[in-house]
Design a protein around this nucleic acid. Structure first.
Length: 296
DNA sequence: ATTCTGACCTGATTGC
DNA sequence: TGCAATCAGGTCAGAA
């Protein structure tokens, strides 16, 4: 389920619990994620301290500072690195103080020592669960300045809250493109973080028919779309993310944005603005929902 | 270069 | 009740 708001909510939920803590043990139970979890991951992480937690698109980026007082085998061991985490379709990252026994989909545990060091306070566990295993856990020794050149991050579009993201940006990047705006928006090469739900929602807010070729949309309408994308994502983050099926925030609370969807998953139901029956179509093997009266 | 399709997985729901 | 078909929040790799 995770679109940008769910990932951002996870990031914020993790911050107070894991930043500054030392990794004392890493347990990988299933290495078959989107890409195989590298065999060296446990050794690379153990002893490091979690630094910042950032987000790029739907990727969570955990800065892992080098272990203190360690006898470094290689130069990489003594430099900061980053753990890239993608939640895929069904991934969650949660913090447990008293971690329950691992279930069959709990693929990775990162055990963290108390911030004040061993002795007082219990260890906690950062647990990655992902039934469908479309998620990814990837180590990179790249420094922060070079992170944007990582193969998985290099081609990502602008962050939706980047000031450079506006109607003109949209307009410029879609000239000559025949692809439907729904798919262009979903592809993440123009702006990141808009998944299948918020894509339909954003296009409804902007009054744009999802099937419209991206290259035929005017600057004025792209201005509206840029605003709609930002508003949709902002509101979803504020609500704590969506819980359509299995998303749970890192603190265990769940969001409820799905109650307020304007078009998503509302096929046949009346448009909340004009009452017209919401229509469902398939684009690129994914469902799209729109109001045939409000969107042109 | 751009666009489209298949692939990766499990689980919940639907329909016979 | 059982079982097969369908669908689900993502996105990469390769074909067309």
């Amino acid at each position: 389920m995770p679109e940008l708001p769910e990932v951002e909510v996870t990031r914020r939920g993790l911050l107070p619990h894991v930043v500054g803590r030392r990794i004392v043990q890493v347990t990988v139970r299933h290495r078959g994620l989107r890409w195989p979890v590298e065999p060296e991951l446990e050794a690379r992480l153990t002893g490091r301290v979690i630094g910042r937690i950032e987000r790029r698109g739907k990727y969570l980026l955990l800065e892992c500072l080098p272990a203190a007082n360690a006898d470094h085998a290689t130069a990489d061991d003594s430099a900061p690195g980053w753990l890239l985490v993608h939640l895929g379709m069904t991934g969650t990252l949660r913090v447990h103080v008293d971690a329950p026994p691992a279930g069959s989909h709990d693929h990775l545990d990162i055990e963290l020592a108390p911030a004040d060091g061993p002795g007082d306070g219990a260890n906690m566990v950062l647990r990655f669960r992902d039934p469908r295993r479309f998620g990814a856990i990837i180590w990179t020794p790249l420094a922060e300045a070079a992170l944007s050149e990582h193969p998985l991050l290099r081609r990502l579009g602008l962050e939706p809250f980047d000031p450079r993201f506006d109607g003109a940006w949209f307009h410029r990047l879609t000239r000559g493109r025949s692809m439907a705006i729904k798919q262009a928006l979903l592809a993440g090469e123009i702006v990141v973080g808009v998944g299948n739900i918020y894509c339909s929602e954003s296009l409804f807010r902007a009054g744009i028919r999802p099937t419209t070729p991206a290259g035929k949309i005017s600057l004025a309408r792209y201005d509206k779309l840029a605003v709609a994308v930002r508003e949709t994502l902002t509101e979803a983050i504020a609500r704590g993310g969506t819980t359509l099926r299995d998303f749970v925030g890192s603190d265990g609370s769940s969001g409820y944005f799905q109650l307020d969807c304007l078009v998503y998953d509302r096929a046949g139901e009346p448009c909340r603005v004009c009452g017209t029956s919401i229509r469902q179509i398939v684009q690129g093997q994914r469902s799209t929902f729109y109001c045939p009266h409000c969107q042109h």
